[in-house]
Nucleic acid binder design. Structure first.
Length: 720
DNA sequence: CCCCGGCCATTTTTT
DNA sequence: ATGGCCGGGG
């Protein structure tokens, strides 16, 4: 194996094979190169069996890339090596042995939407109100419990004296029972149950511990507690654990990632060897200095500083726009300009933003300038209604115990099976413990009209026929049959709207996904298809061939790089996002996110912000983000005017503090008779007429000034 | 049972 | 601005 192209630190990381190793890999420091060379070195030079190697990543994309790059180094000799994501690793382990902890090995995987529906049911059945126990917050509590490896019992025991959490523990318990009876696991369970299996079953634990003599974990800063325990269980026997990560790029704390895992690695493994990769091969010096000057404000980080041999480079561009449209147009013009003058491809450009909602204005400007673009992450392919519906049919066929899937499609397309009918079925299911689909086979004891019974019988016959087809037809034909026989597309055609046509298009795309699966997958079964679909994201399929500008959130951009990067909407309240501004820890995470964003740029970095921004249908004054003032002024292009961060607007400052909501009465100077149609006088804009009102926000048309939205909480209007 | 209109919240999301 | 959800009327 030729290791001469590696720098000193990289080489030391590659050749230190035995014992615990922490690789602190700064952004763009050749991390993937190090991991892949390390694997190749182990197999090729040290003759270590690929069978005993395990590499874990977070994304399919990273796993795929790692596999490809190892292949290009040593051919397919690594084909017996496990390179997989946390979740697919766990699925693989569980499919083999989950029966040892009392589950069925043909389990399906529930995504977030499924989780929420199930939790809603549980909240209701526990006699709780959805308004005080919001499904999403209950879900995050349960998910957090699983991250911390607390089962419902342990959760209850820990929080029995907390009113709210003890109620949630009841929901959690019911939720787990329902998952089990639906023969389903959620994402968190995949890790949780694998840990449980390894902990409780000596035989299985011993098998994997012997097998995996060398374990590598990528993006270690993003691991949560459960993943941490899993890694330790797997590598416990040989202790050849190599973790790679960058504490400065930890941006998933809100999802349970525990930055302490990486910060404390040396405490966990006293004999750990630490390598810092600090030479950056990606960005120019100006960009790195900018990123460094921001991130150094964070406390409690591993001490390191990226450097580069790529000197100089264009200074950072700072642009203050009038509003979000102006900002978007500026970006579009700059892209056009650089595309023409510097002969760049569109794929050289990335527009990064904090929230998905910001993509709209950018998108419109790009359309206006006829620049092709692709938005990643806004709404995922598999989250689309029509795809989920078809998937629900497939899921029910695969797993008739999946009540959630049944409920989703029993009336889709419309068959006249409504809430009342389902209620009757569920009532019975609760008593007998049977699955809904099981109950449908004998409707004799139900108080239902003949018409409904006939419909339900037809439905059962259809699903049963699908089950037969599944056994004999290739997956592609089977899926086509499901689409045809359910008349799903026929119904859409009948609708004859643009929306329906879009949905049909998506179903066509879905069919090609199935076809692709048939070509690429070893196991061509429905079960395998369903699990693979649950474990992929849109980001996994970025096509290198096409030429378009990339639009994505800062979170999605991690791990990617682009010659020219625009960070848009770098304003207080957006970035850092308002909810993170009060908490120092959250603020540090926002700062890391800023660091991640800046270090995506190879050559040119733009930072833009707007003076005014319409968000959630409401116009707000905006000011430059504090992160801008944290960048050394000398790094900006000369004409950039830096405005020091000023306090927020009065309204923004007080609305959270005093919980001013839409229902609060506007504070007028003794006048509460201003309604739509009233003529008013505004201290700054003069005379106008009220055209609409939402809570305290009045939309007012001013003479010669256009339409403005005025929040009357702090500004007095007087009626003319 | 189905549809529509009003009410509500609205960060980020590798799996 | 927009999409999801609930409740009342057809």
């Amino acid at each position: 194996m030729d290791l001469t192209g590696l720098n000193k630190d990289q080489l030391s990381a590659v050749t230190r094979v035995e014992g615990p190793l922490l690789i602190l890999a700064g952004a763009g420091s050749g991390k993937t190169r190090v991991i892949t060379y390390r694997i190749a070195h182990m197999i090729e030079d040290l003759k270590i069996s690929p069978y005993s190697l395990l590499a874990i990543t977070f994304t399919n994309k990273a796993a795929k890339e790692m596999r490809e790059r190892v292949n290009s180094l040593i051919g397919d000799r690594a084909k017996d090596m496990w390179i997989s994501t946390f979740h697919s690793l766990c699925v693989r382990i569980l499919r083999r042995d989950i029966e040892r902890i009392g589950y069925n090995r043909s389990f399906v995987i529930y995504d977030t939407q499924d989780q929420l529906s199930l939790i809603k049911e549980c909240i209701k059945e526990c006699g709780l109100r959805e308004d005080s126990f919001k499904p999403s917050s209950v879900l995050s509590a349960i998910s957090g419990a699983k991250d911390k490896l607390l089962n419902p019992k342990a959760f209850e025991a820990r929080y029995f004296n907390d009113f709210r959490l003890s109620k949630i523990s009841k929901v959690y318990d019911l939720y787990q029972r329902k998952l089990k009876s639906n023969n389903a696991l959620d994402f968190d369970d995949l890790i949780f149950k694998t840990v449980e299996l390894l902990k409780t079953d000596e035989f299985v634990r011993d098998f994997y511990q012997r097998k995996f003599q060398y374990v590598m974990v990528d993006e270690y800063q993003d691991t949560n507690h459960a993943q941490y325990v899993l890694i330790n269980l797997l590598s416990e026997m040989h202790k050849n654990l190599c973790v790679v990560g960058d504490d400065d790029q930890s941006i998933y704390g809100w999802r349970g990632a525990d930055i302490a895992n990486i910060l404390d690695f040396e405490k966990d493994y006293k004999d750990a060897f630490v390598v810092k990769l600090e030479q950056n091969y990606r960005s120019t010096e100006v960009i790195l200095d900018g990123a460094n000057s921001v991130i150094k404000r964070n406390l409690g980080r591993k001490n390191k500083k990226l450097w580069t041999q790529l000197k100089e480079g264009e200074k950072i561009k700072l642009h203050k726009a009038y509003d979000e449209k102006d900002e978007a147009n500026f970006i579009a013009r700059e892209i056009k300009k650089r595309q023409e003058e510097e002969d760049r491809n569109l794929r050289d450009f990335a527009l990064l933003y904090r929230t998905n909602a910001q993509s709209r204005a950018l998108e419109e400007a790009l359309i206006k300038h006829s620049i092709s673009y692709k938005i990643f992450g806004s709404l995922k392919f598999y989250d689309r209604k029509e795809i989920k519906d078809i998937m629900a049919y497939l899921r029910l066929v695969q797993n008739p115990l999946d009540d959630l899937a049944l409920k989703r499609i029993v009336n889709v397309p419309k068959r006249g099976i409504g809430a009342k009918t389902l209620e009757k079925l569920e009532e019975r299911a609760l008593v007998t413990g049977e699955s809904l689909f099981g109950l449908l086979h004998d409707l004799s004891g139900f108080d239902l009209s003949t018409k409904v019974k006939t419909t339900l019988n037809k439905f059962v016959m259809m699903i049963n026929s699908f089950m037969d087809m599944k056994e004999i037809l290739p997956l592609t034909e089977f899926v086509q049959k499901v689409i045809d026989n359910t008349r799903y597309v026929d119904e859409l055609k009948a609708e004859d709207t643009d929306e329906a046509r879009g949905r049909i298009e998506n179903i066509e795309e879905f069919k090609s996904v199935v076809m692709e699966f048939m070509q690429n997958s070893e196991e061509k079964t429905l079960e395998e298809f369903l699990s693979s679909v649950s474990l992929v994201s849109d980001l996994d399929s970025i096509d290198e061939e096409d030429d378009f500008v990339t639009l994505m959130t800062l979170h999605s951009a991690k791990g990617l790089e682009f010659p020219v990067v625009f960070l848009a909407g770098v304003e207080e309240g957006i970035f850092p996002i308002s909810r993170a501004m009060l908490d120092e820890n959250q603020l540090e995470e926002e700062r890391r996110l800023c660091y991640v964003g800046m270090t995506r740029a190879k050559q040119i970095l733009y930072i833009t912000y707007a003076n005014e921004r319409t968000l959630y249908g409401r116009r707000n004054h905006a000011i430059a983000s504090r992160f801008i003032s944290e960048i050394d002024e000398s790094l900006f292009e000369e004409n950039a005017k830096i405005e020091k961060t000023k306090p927020q607007s009065l309204y923004d400052r007080y609305k959270d503090k005093y919980k001013i909501g839409q229902d609060d009465k506007p504070k007028f100077d003794g006048q509460d008779d201003i309604t739509v149609g009233s003529k008013i006088k505004h201290p700054k804009f003069g005379i106008g007429m009220v055209v609409a009102k939402t809570g305290t926000v009045y939309t007012i048309a001013f003479e010669g000034q256009g339409i403005k939205q005025i929040d009357t909480t702090f500004i007095s209007l007087s009626k003319l």
